[in-house]
C-alpha cells in the first residue's frame, strides 16, 4: 500500500494539479489554536507541514521566526507537539503530516524515542533543516524503518553529482528550495529558471514527488502549476501575525487564504 504522502500526490495528480502543502508552526499562537488551524486548513491543503519551533533557527526568515518565538513564549514543548498531531490525526480532518524543524530538538529528545513518538502520534514525514546529506544517512534509514518519510532538501547550490546521490538516497518525496534565501524571501529568481532546475531533478528521478518551497505566495503560486507540489509557509505565518495584530481570528483568515491558494492551482 502506498504511504499517505504518496497517496496525497497521487490524488492531486489525478485532479491534474500540484499538491498544496502548508506550513504552520506548532503552538502558534497557542496549542489549541494551532490545532484548529490545522483542522481548518486541511479542507483545502493536501499535506500539512508542522513546524517544530526552535529559538536559533539558521534558515528561517522573519515571518516564521515570529511564529516560532510566539509558540515558544506560550510554552510549547515537544510532547505538546506530538499531542497536537495526534489530536489532528484522530479527527475527521486528518491529512498527512510532516514535522519540520532543527536537529537539536530531535537530538535532545533522542532519535529513537522521537521516531517512536512520531509513529504513535501519526507523523508521516520529517524535514530536518540542518541535517544535510550525507550526515543524515543513518537517521534517514531509521526513519524508513519506522515507515516515516525522511524528506531530503535540494537547493540551487547543490551540484549535479550531489543531486544524483541525494535523490538516490531519498524516500518518496523531495523538497527543492527555489532560491538562495531564508524562508519568506521575495522571489528573486524567475519561475522559469526555478522550473528548469526542478525539471533537472525530475529527469534524474522521475518517480519521486518533488515539491518546490521558499518564495511561494498567493502572487507567485500559479506560475508553478507544473510541479508535483508547492509549499506555502511564510505567507501563512504572516497572516496569523496580521490577524492577531488586528484582533481577528487567525483560524478563519488562514483558512480563507489557503482556500484561495488552492483555487489558484486548481
Amino acid at each position: 500500500m502506498l504511504n499517505p504522502i504518496s497517496q496525497a500526490f497521487k490524488k492531486s495528480k489525478k485532479e491534474n494539479r500540484p499538491a498544496l502543502l502548508t506550513y504552520t508552526v506548532a503552538g502558534d499562537s497557542s496549542k489549541n489554536q494551532s490545532l484548529e488551524i490545522l483542522k481548518s486548513v486541511s479542507k483545502h491543503a493536501d499535506i500539512l507541514e508542522v513546524g517544530v519551533p526552535h529559538n536559533t533557527p539558521v534558515a528561517d526568515g522573519g515571518q516564521i521566526q515570529t511564529s516560532s518565538y510566539r509558540a515558544i513564549k506560550n510554552g510549547i514543548k515537544m510532547n505538546d507537539i506530538f499531542k497536537i498531531v495526534k489530536d489532528f490525526k484522530i479527527s475527521k480532518y486528518s491529512k498527512p503530516i510532516i514535522l519540520m524543524g532543527y536537529y537539536n530538538m530531535i537530538y535532545q529528545f533522542g532519535e529513537n524515542k522521537f521516531l517512536k513518538e512520531c509513529k504513535k502520534s501519526g507523523v508521516n514525514g520529517l524535514i530536518v533543516v540542518d541535517l544535510p546529506w550525507p550526515e543524515n544517512k543513518i537517521f534517514s534509514k531509521k526513519c524508513k524503518k519506522s515507515s516515516i518519510n525522511f524528506i531530503q532538501l535540494l537547493s540551487p547550490t547543490t551540484s549535479y553529482k550531489r543531486l544524483k546521490s541525494i535523490t538516490k538516497d531519498s524516500h518518496d518525496m523531495i523538497y527543492y528550495i527555489s532560491m538562495l534565501s531564508t524562508t519568506g524571501g521575495k522571489l528573486k529568481v524567475s519561475p522559469k529558471k526555478i522550473l528548469q532546475n526542478y525539471n533537472k531533478i525530475k529527469n534524474i528521478s522521475p518517480k519521486k514527488n518533488c515539491v518546490i518551497g521558499f518564495g511561494i505566495t498567493e502572487k507567485t503560486i500559479s506560475k508553478f502549476k507544473s510541479a508535483d507540489g508547492l509549499v506555502v509557509g511564510s505567507q501563512i505565518c504572516k497572516e496569523i501575525t496580521r490577524s492577531l495584530n488586528n484582533r481577528q481570528n487567525p483560524v478563519i483568515n488562514v483558512s480563507k487564504m489557503v482556500n484561495k491558494l488552492k483555487k489558484k492551482i486548481s
Binding site: 539558521v58 534558515a59 536537529y103 533543516v129 540542518d130 541535517l131 544535510p132 546529506w133 550526515e135 532538501l153 535540494l154 537547493s155 540551487p156 547550490t157 547543490t158 551540484s159 550531489r162 528550495i177 538562495l180
Partner: peptide, 12 residues
C-alpha cells in the same frame, strides 16, 4: 563540531 547546516550552505 560537524556541519549541521542547511543544504544551501553545503556548497559554499
Amino acid at each position: 563540531g560537524g556541519n549541521f547546516v542547511p543544504e544551501t550552505l553545503k556548497r559554499p
